[in-house]
Simulated scan of single mutants.
Amino acid sequence: MNFKLSGHHLEITQPLREYVETKLERVIRHFDQVIGVSVLLTVDNQTEKDKRQRAEINLHLKGKDIFVESHHEDLYAAIDALVDKLDRQVIKHKDKVQNHDRVALKYQATADEARL
Protein backbone atom coordinates (compact mmCIF):
# COMPACT_ATOMS: atom_id res chain seq x y z
CA MET A 1 0.00 0.00 0.00
CA ASN A 2 1.30 3.42 -0.95
CA PHE A 3 0.77 6.07 1.71
CA LYS A 4 1.25 9.77 0.96
CA LEU A 5 0.65 12.49 3.56
CA SER A 6 1.06 16.13 2.62
CA GLY A 7 0.14 19.47 4.11
CA HIS A 8 -0.67 22.89 2.67
CA HIS A 9 0.21 25.85 4.87
CA LEU A 10 1.00 23.27 7.53
CA GLU A 11 4.06 21.34 8.65
CA ILE A 12 3.42 17.62 9.07
CA THR A 13 4.89 16.64 12.42
CA GLN A 14 5.65 13.08 13.51
CA PRO A 15 2.77 12.91 16.06
CA LEU A 16 0.33 14.13 13.39
CA ARG A 17 1.63 11.51 10.92
CA GLU A 18 1.28 8.74 13.53
CA TYR A 19 -2.24 9.90 14.40
CA VAL A 20 -3.35 9.71 10.77
CA GLU A 21 -1.72 6.31 10.29
CA THR A 22 -3.36 4.82 13.39
CA LYS A 23 -6.76 6.14 12.31
CA LEU A 24 -6.36 4.65 8.82
CA GLU A 25 -5.57 1.23 10.29
CA ARG A 26 -9.27 0.94 11.12
CA VAL A 27 -10.20 1.36 7.46
CA ILE A 28 -7.57 -1.09 6.28
CA ARG A 29 -8.78 -3.62 8.87
CA HIS A 30 -12.24 -3.59 7.24
CA PHE A 31 -11.06 -3.81 3.64
CA ASP A 32 -7.59 -5.11 2.83
CA GLN A 33 -7.57 -4.44 -0.94
CA VAL A 34 -6.26 -0.89 -0.58
CA ILE A 35 -3.78 0.08 -3.28
CA GLY A 36 -2.94 3.65 -2.32
CA VAL A 37 -3.84 6.38 0.15
CA SER A 38 -3.27 10.08 -0.36
CA VAL A 39 -4.03 12.41 2.58
CA LEU A 40 -3.99 16.21 2.34
CA LEU A 41 -4.17 18.36 5.47
CA THR A 42 -4.78 22.08 4.94
CA VAL A 43 -5.11 25.22 7.01
CA ASP A 44 -7.20 27.76 5.10
CA ASN A 45 -6.78 31.47 5.64
CA GLN A 46 -10.48 32.20 5.75
CA THR A 47 -12.18 34.73 7.96
CA GLU A 48 -14.34 31.95 9.39
CA LYS A 49 -12.47 30.37 12.27
CA ASP A 50 -14.96 27.55 12.83
CA LYS A 51 -14.11 25.63 9.62
CA ARG A 52 -10.55 26.63 9.02
CA GLN A 53 -8.88 23.20 9.26
CA ARG A 54 -9.52 20.82 6.37
CA ALA A 55 -8.59 17.18 5.85
CA GLU A 56 -9.18 15.25 2.67
CA ILE A 57 -8.31 11.78 1.53
CA ASN A 58 -8.24 9.96 -1.76
CA LEU A 59 -8.37 6.19 -1.28
CA HIS A 60 -7.55 4.00 -4.27
CA LEU A 61 -9.18 0.58 -3.90
CA LYS A 62 -9.31 -2.34 -6.24
CA GLY A 63 -12.08 -1.29 -8.61
CA LYS A 64 -12.93 2.12 -7.15
CA ASP A 65 -11.53 5.44 -5.94
CA ILE A 66 -13.08 7.05 -2.87
CA PHE A 67 -12.68 10.76 -2.07
CA VAL A 68 -13.72 12.21 1.30
CA GLU A 69 -13.17 15.63 2.86
CA SER A 70 -13.93 17.14 6.24
CA HIS A 71 -13.79 20.64 7.75
CA HIS A 72 -13.51 21.57 11.41
CA GLU A 73 -11.95 24.15 13.71
CA ASP A 74 -9.59 21.49 15.14
CA LEU A 75 -7.41 19.45 12.78
CA TYR A 76 -7.61 16.30 14.91
CA ALA A 77 -11.41 16.53 14.96
CA ALA A 78 -11.39 16.98 11.18
CA ILE A 79 -9.27 13.82 10.85
CA ASP A 80 -11.67 11.91 13.12
CA ALA A 81 -14.69 12.99 11.07
CA LEU A 82 -12.82 12.16 7.87
CA VAL A 83 -12.01 8.63 8.99
CA ASP A 84 -15.60 8.05 10.13
CA LYS A 85 -16.94 9.07 6.72
CA LEU A 86 -14.30 7.01 4.94
CA ASP A 87 -15.03 3.96 7.07
CA ARG A 88 -18.73 4.10 6.20
CA GLN A 89 -17.98 4.38 2.48
CA VAL A 90 -15.45 1.53 2.54
CA ILE A 91 -17.88 -0.77 4.36
CA LYS A 92 -20.60 0.14 1.85
CA HIS A 93 -18.24 -0.64 -1.05
CA LYS A 94 -17.20 -3.92 0.57
CA ASP A 95 -20.85 -4.97 0.93
CA LYS A 96 -21.48 -4.18 -2.73
CA VAL A 97 -18.44 -6.18 -3.81
CA GLN A 98 -19.31 -9.22 -1.71
CA ASN A 99 -23.10 -8.99 -2.23
CA HIS A 100 -24.19 -11.94 -0.12
CA ASP A 101 -27.88 -11.56 -0.96
CA ARG A 102 -27.65 -13.64 -4.14
CA VAL A 103 -29.08 -17.13 -4.18
CA ALA A 104 -26.78 -19.90 -5.37
CA LEU A 105 -27.83 -21.65 -8.58
CA LYS A 106 -28.25 -25.06 -6.94
CA TYR A 107 -30.64 -23.59 -4.36
CA GLN A 108 -32.43 -21.52 -6.99
CA ALA A 109 -33.20 -24.64 -9.04
CA THR A 110 -34.74 -26.42 -6.03
CA ALA A 111 -36.77 -23.32 -5.18
CA ASP A 112 -38.16 -23.20 -8.71
CA GLU A 113 -39.13 -26.89 -8.51
CA ALA A 114 -40.82 -26.32 -5.15
CA ARG A 115 -43.08 -23.65 -6.65
CA LEU A 116 -44.39 -26.12 -9.24
Rank of each mutant, 00 (worst) to 15 (best):
E18T: 06
F67T: 03
L5T: 12
Q14M: 05
K96I: 12
K64M: 12
K96E: 14
A114S: 04
D112M: 14
L41W: 06
R88P: 03
L5Y: 05
Q46K: 08
L41K: 01
K64Y: 03
D74G: 04
F3Y: 13
K51Y: 10
Y107M: 12
Q46C: 07
R52V: 08
L61F: 04
L116A: 14
G63Y: 02
S70Y: 01
I79T: 05
V97S: 03
V39H: 04
R102Q: 09
I79V: 13
T47F: 03
E48S: 15
V37T: 15
I66T: 05
H60L: 11
V20D: 02
Y19T: 06
P15M: 02
R26H: 10
A81S: 15
G63V: 07
N99R: 12
V43N: 04
H100C: 01
K51T: 05
T110W: 09
S70F: 01
I12H: 00
E56M: 07
R102P: 00
D101M: 11
V39A: 06
I35D: 06
A104E: 14
N58L: 11
V27T: 09
T110Y: 11
D95I: 00
V34K: 07
F67D: 04
K51D: 13
L5K: 03
N99V: 03
I79K: 09
S70G: 05
T13L: 01
L16N: 06
L82C: 01
F67P: 02
F67N: 05
Q46R: 04
T42M: 09
S38G: 04
V37C: 04
Y76S: 02
R52C: 08
R17A: 08
Y107K: 12
I57T: 03
D87H: 13
D74W: 09
R52Q: 13
H100A: 15
L116I: 10
H8P: 00
R26I: 10
H71W: 06
I66W: 03
D101S: 14
I91F: 00
S38D: 15
T13W: 00
I28T: 08
G7H: 01
V43S: 09
